[in-house]
Nucleic acid binder design. Sequence first.
DNA 1: TTGACAATAGTACGACCGTTCGTATTATTT
DNA 2: AAATAATACGAACGGTCGTACTATTGTCAA
Lengths: 198, 198
Amino acid sequence: MSKGERTRAAILDQALAMTSTDGLTGLTIGTLADRLGMSKSGLFAHFGSKEQLQAAVLERAAELFADTVVRPALAQPRGLPRVLGLFENWIAWTMDPVLPGGCPIQAASIEFDDRPGPIQDLIVKQQEDMRRVVIGAARRAVEEGHLRADLDVEQFAFEGISLCYGFTQSYRLLKNPKSEVWARNAVHGLVDRARVRQ
Amino acid sequence: MSKGERTRAAILDQALAMTSTDGLTGLTIGTLADRLGMSKSGLFAHFGSKEQLQAAVLERAAELFADTVVRPALAQPRGLPRVLGLFENWIAWTMDPVLPGGCPIQAASIEFDDRPGPIQDLIVKQQEDMRRVVIGAARRAVEEGHLRADLDVEQFAFEGISLCYGFTQSYRLLKNPKSEVWARNAVHGLVDRARVRQ
DNA sequence: TTGACAATAGTACGACCGTTCGTATTATTT
DNA sequence: AAATAATACGAACGGTCGTACTATTGTCAA
């Protein structure tokens, strides 16, 4: 790992934390450089433009999400455990102090939902990927016989993802201590209703 | 209505649209003045500070939300119709072209969930108000015998609000044409499960 | 119609934005 | 050890930000 790659990684770590609290727009090259004790221009040279910095941050965030949420869930036995693992890990991810201001991708979703361009395209792709992961896990659980054969997996994914989003708002903004219980109850209810009747 | 009050209202209308797409931080006095064909300083004089402008925008947004979502729902007969009305109107509100970029309050929620201060306080208050409205409607529906007596109304509100939030993301960012159907299915499912067994 | 005051415009400010450039320093390769 | 590439720096650019002051215009009751 060359020197450049090391600093680039350090920049992205700090940028991720900053984006988490201030958003992709609030992420500013000057203050980011200050926090890292380096010059604006030196930092800038690593990315070439602010937009490319933003894209790099989003990609780093997605990696972290994959490592923290998706991969551990997919390591579970296929079927129901994977589906539950996804939601459980997602809830834990929202509370993870590694991201001091919550999921940067979710923040960026709302920030950029009316600003077409490469950044929006990237966000949409990431969200679609996540949707596909949930749908795939649910479909697999159907095949395994854990979930009902007539389950509408797209509807299922919509509801599960919505609950994870709502949890963020309840936990991070309203700071309601019951948020976690509500979120867990909700996703478990969602999964229970999707199970085969016995 | 004096001249000043009229321009102030015009400013807030335009500011609301701008906040809807660009967020409360992206709302900028210079561009706002340009769009209204007036000077920065002339506009500025109406509010005294950007923060007060932001607060005024949020209050105007809350009024609009109350007029569009809450009041029409509360005009329905108490009990189940009111609960359903709330969710239906909320979904319609998210799609309303009056707010070209979706609900400004929801956007502000994520923008300010890590920026303590008077604006965050105001947003929290507004969200708590809305939560109370949903909880109140659900509780009333229990009293009317429409919903189960053992219903956890807080859990119910959490799930309902989460679905409305998730709908925004699915509809506005991902532009999935099935979003509306999913959202309606989800809230109707939520309500159906809360109904008394017969 | 005039006088008082509200409403708007004009101008300037310091701070910060993203970006560019030339140059110095440090790594890496030859 | 010499040559070359990678990395970082400081200074400066044109712009925009929010805000402060002063001047001008418009409104409306007496």
